[in-house]
């Protein structure tokens, strides 16, 4: 985990901020108010953004792929 890249900490912090923006109300309200088909877009949106964040974290954390 020793960051070889000096930008590693900054990237990680920005990723956490991105996660907060994705998981928190202002954006959530927008998704929630989309016209619904069946059960609404919220669950789908949450799982997709969650998966995205996990993928980005993996990309950042795994030493072999760290740029």
């Amino acid at each position: 985990m020793k960051p070889s890249n000096p930008r590693y900490r900054e990237r990680l912090l920005v990723l956490v901020i991105l996660a907060l923006i994705l998981f928190c109300p202002p954006l959530l309200l927008v998704i929630d108010r989309l016209p619904t088909l069946s059960i609404g877009w919220l669950p789908m949106y949450l799982f997709c953004s969650w998966a995205l964040i996990i993928g980005l974290t993996a990309w950042l954390m795994e030493p072999t792929t760290r740029r």
């Binding site: 928190c24 959530l28 619904t36 069946s38 059960i39 919220l42």
Partner: peptide, 28 residues
């Protein structure tokens, strides 16, 4: 499954933010 849920209005409302206790504040 979701097609069946869509025919039950009470259920299709369930997965929206208004079902969350405390709404947006409760969420955070």
């Amino acid at each position: 499954l979701f097609a069946q849920v869509a025919q039950t209005p009470a259920l299709s409302q369930l997965m929206q933010l208004e079902s969350v206790p405390g709404g947006a504040t409760g969420w955070v």
